[in-house]
């Protein structure tokens, strides 16, 4: 018998076991052992990999080290996507641990953003939160908050402090009862196969008649290719935080309970494994 609040905890404390291996072409003084780490799904690569950096920098010379970047099976991993999203999109049906390759050279300027310090991550994180609140509440809630509240959101994410984060974030998840939901749902749909980085459109959680829109309604509206007709075999998976919610799930509920800390619902559409 679980309560909705337990979902929040499960989402926050989700971890992905990862194995970091140094790219073979990097110059090292000694053999670099792979480094194993449990990564929080809800955080960002560059925020949680200090230990990885330190580990590999121990076996390298100072002059060979420039900005760290990560890659999986040839694709550079965008650090500004949450780790859980990256995993679901690229490696969800592969064997664990997730094998990530660490690079210190040849930063792919076209594919990745630079991340020189934690401030860059903070700025990106806060920008996402503000954008989400603009969609949900016309930015009223986020603007009413003080600077220290914003800071608390960031500190909660950085230090993995669930209560600290949600003490403030719950305000962003409120809405006037008359409306039965947010103004628009902040979501992004990612598909590994397309050129477009993601799909983001305006979508209301409640129909004019008062019924709640579901995940299926959202997909039908913004990404119809994702919906397989009844009788056909399902070829794709719609994944959030590593699970496949039923299409009947109300989108308002998903937004409140299964958003990432940046308040966005990051949804991955991936091909279904055929085994």
């Amino acid at each position: 018998m679980t309560d909705d609040k337990d979902v929040l905890r499960d989402v926050w404390f989700g971890r992905i076991p990862t194995c970091f291996t140094l790219y073979q072409d990097e110059i090292t003084e000694r053999e670099a052992d792979p480094y194993y780490l449990l990564l929080p799904r809800i955080s960002y690569l560059t925020l949680v990999t200090d230990k990885v950096k330190k580990h590999f920098q121990k076996v390298m010379r100072q002059e060979d080290v420039s900005e760290i970047w990560f890659e999986y099976e040839g694709s550079p991993l965008k650090w500004h996507y949450p780790i859980g999203l990256l995993f679901d999109l690229h490696a969800s049906n592969t064997a664990l641990p997730w094998n990530i390759t660490v690079h210190f050279k040849n930063f792919p300027e076209k594919d990745l953003l630079h991340c020189h310090s934690k401030d860059v991550i903070e700025a990106h994180f806060m920008a996402c939160i503000k954008e989400a609140d603009a969609l949900k509440h016309k930015s009223q809630v986020i603007n009413e908050m003080q600077k220290k509240d914003h800071k608390q959101l960031w500190m909660g994410l950085q230090n993995d402090k669930f209560e600290q984060f949600w003490a403030i974030n719950r305000k962003l998840m409120e809405y006037i009862p008359e409306d039965s939901g947010f103004r628009y749902i902040p979501f992004r749909i990612y598909q590994a196969t397309t050129e477009r980085p993601f799909i983001q459109k305006l979508f209301r959680p409640v129909a004019p008649g008062g019924q709640l829109h579901t995940l299926g309604d959202l997909l039908k509206e913004v990404c119809p290719t994702a919906i397989t007709p009844e009788d056909c075999e399902k070829t794709i998976q719609v994944m959030i935080h590593g699970i496949e919610p039923m299409l009947e799930t109300p989108i308002q509920w998903l937004s409140e309970h299964m958003s990432y800390p940046d308040n966005f619902l990051h949804i991955s559409i991936i091909p279904r494994p055929t085994d």
Binding site: V7, V11, Y36, L38, P40, T49, L96, N159
Partner: peptide, 21 residues
Amino acid sequence: QQLSERTKRELENFRHYEQAV
């Protein structure tokens, strides 16, 4: 149900890993 399965899958055999944070 899926969340608890996921936790099992992703965490059970890897508890000996270090925490990132």
